[in-house]
Amino acid sequence: MRHIEALQNEDIEIQLLIEAIFLKYGYDFRGYSRAHMKRRIMRRLTISGIDSISEMQRLVIYDREFFEKLLGDFSINVTEMFRDPSFYKAFRKEVVPVLQTYPFIKVWHAGCSTGEEVYSMAILLKEEGLYERSQIYATDFNEEVLQKAKEGIYPIEAIKEYTYNYQHAGGKAAFADYYVAKYDSAILEPSLKKKVIFADHNLVTDGVFGEMNVVICRNVLIYFDKELQNKVVGLFHESLCNGGFLCLGSKESLRFNKYVDNFDPVIENEKVYRKKFGC
């Protein structure tokens, strides 16, 4: 029988590891979901054949390369173009008409990972005639994925699914118009990058991104504990202009958040909120 003590020891080791990462590199995972962190740490432990989390802690401190690997494990980069097509469809219907009344549109895509969802939004804005007066800021703390996002090159075998998603997301053209196939890759149309600025930004430790009309942050908050969720939604609230839109993942919500009363739900099912005026 696995003793309660063994479990408690593991918890102490995990806490110390996370603390070591913060002290050594400044990356702060202390407010991340602990169940999630444990899974990621245990996964790396198994892959690397390391004996214990304490041994991993030593490696993290003395071996930057190992740390970089672990850092990659901590960010979840499962994404796809037009992921949750119904979100994009609803965005076209409910949010676009409001955006059409603005002379200039600023969109912040926080936690953009490898960029698939950023380019999806670029396509949507293009088809709605808003792209030329938009600026998309796409940020992530993981430099490796940010580099991939900048390239905008995706494996060709994903295109079938992306095309399905695009069609169900209310796409107005043919998805093939937006990429060129080359060997095993689909290279996205260069104009989709024209209005996108990719930048390194850490939601936990970095500050406000000013006067946004739309903040998109999907499937990022689920990895944070309640306290950190409060902090980050506070950051979004401060970054949004009055009446600005906050778009969360379809299984995320502001229900348990401190700022719930500062937003109006716009599309309940798709978790699109609007910052209330004057608060």
Binding site: D11, S33, R34, A35, H36, R39, R40, I76, V78, N219, I222, Y223, D225, G249, K251
Partner: peptide
């Protein structure tokens, strides 16, 4: 558990979701 999400339990017995692989 919702389709396409992992379901986890935290130490405080709150539920957590994940989109990891």
């Amino acid at each position: 558990a919702p389709p396409n999400y992992h379901l986890l339990v935290e130490k405080d017995r709150c539920l957590a979701l994940s989109t990891e692989e």
